[in-house]
Simulated assay, not measured.
Amino acid sequence: MSLRKFLTSSTFFKNLFFALVIVILFLVVFVKFLDFSTNHGEEIKVPDLSKMKLEIAEEKLDEDGLEVFLLDTVEFKPEFPPYTIVEQDPIAGSKVKDGRKIYVKLNAGGYAMVTFPDLKNKTFRQATNALRALGLVEGELKYVPDLAKDIVLEVSYNGRPVKAGDKLMKNSKIDFVLGDGKDMFKDEDLDSIPNNEQINDSIE
């Protein structure tokens, strides 16, 4: 039989039809297999990882078919235990597909250390602005007699004097001794000031 007659014969069309059916069936089975293996259409609710240690979060997410990915360690937040998760993306309650990575940030192990500035003889306002910029906190205030009002005379932490260059943890409370501005010249100070007669005598 010639090729031309074969291509126009009923046998060729039957074989072509069966071949197309087999290809279609294969494609259907393949798509179903992909849907099953990738949990197509199935979503997983992201758990709340807040305040969890990274190892515990890894175990929990692994059970749900998810992964954890550590992005960074953030500055210490006292409302979270050290080295626990403080942020996550996607957030808790989100719906994601199987195998999705959950990005997290960990709390630092404690407050960072800062270098204490020179506050002596500065105004209390200047001193508190400098403290807040470093993450320190003003504590108790004590006023003592002095000519200048609200001038920093002494600073201390936990009863220990603090000087410029000392290292302290952020959020430390700094106590101040300030001038009250009420100290006046004493009688002996006034006696030491020459009067007009003394000035005239000295001129003569």
Rank of each mutant, 00 (worst) to 15 (best):
T115Y: 06
E140D: 08
D187P: 02
L134K: 03
F36C: 03
A92E: 13
I199V: 13
G110Q: 10
E204S: 13
Y111K: 05
I56H: 14
I22N: 09
P82F: 12
A127T: 12
V177N: 00
L190S: 05
E67T: 09
I199Q: 08
V74C: 11
K173M: 13
L136V: 06
K53T: 14
F185N: 10
L3S: 12
A130W: 04
K45R: 12
K186N: 07
D150K: 01
L190F: 15
I199S: 06
D191S: 07
F176Q: 00
N121E: 09
I44G: 00
I102T: 05
V46C: 01
D183F: 15
E58C: 03
D48N: 15
E55H: 12
Q198W: 11
V137R: 11
K77M: 14
F33Q: 11
V137G: 04
E204N: 15
F80T: 00
E75A: 15
K101L: 09
V162Q: 03
R4F: 11
N107Q: 08
S9L: 01
M169I: 04
L131G: 01
P90G: 08
F76E: 02
L119C: 04
D48F: 13
K186W: 10
K53S: 14
S9V: 05
L16C: 05
F6A: 07
L147E: 06
V162H: 01
R160Y: 12
G110D: 11
D180M: 02
N196T: 08
K45S: 11
Q198L: 06
G179I: 01
N195D: 15
K95S: 09
D98W: 08
L106Y: 03
L106C: 06
L71F: 14
Q198T: 06
D183C: 07
N121L: 11
D72K: 08
D72T: 15
S50F: 15
L141E: 12
P82Y: 14
R125S: 12
S37T: 08
T123W: 02
P81E: 08
S192Q: 12
L49P: 01
Y111G: 04
L16E: 06
N196E: 12
G181F: 10
D146G: 10
S202M: 08
N121G: 04
H40Q: 08
T128R: 01
T38Y: 11
V144I: 14
D191P: 00
E140P: 01
L131E: 01
D191I: 07
N196G: 03
L178V: 04
F176G: 00
V86N: 00
T115A: 07
E67K: 13
E55F: 13
L168H: 07
G135I: 02
I56E: 15
L141T: 14
V96H: 03
D64F: 11
F12E: 03
M52A: 07
I199Y: 14
L70V: 12
D166F: 02
F124M: 07
L25K: 00
L141C: 11
D166L: 01
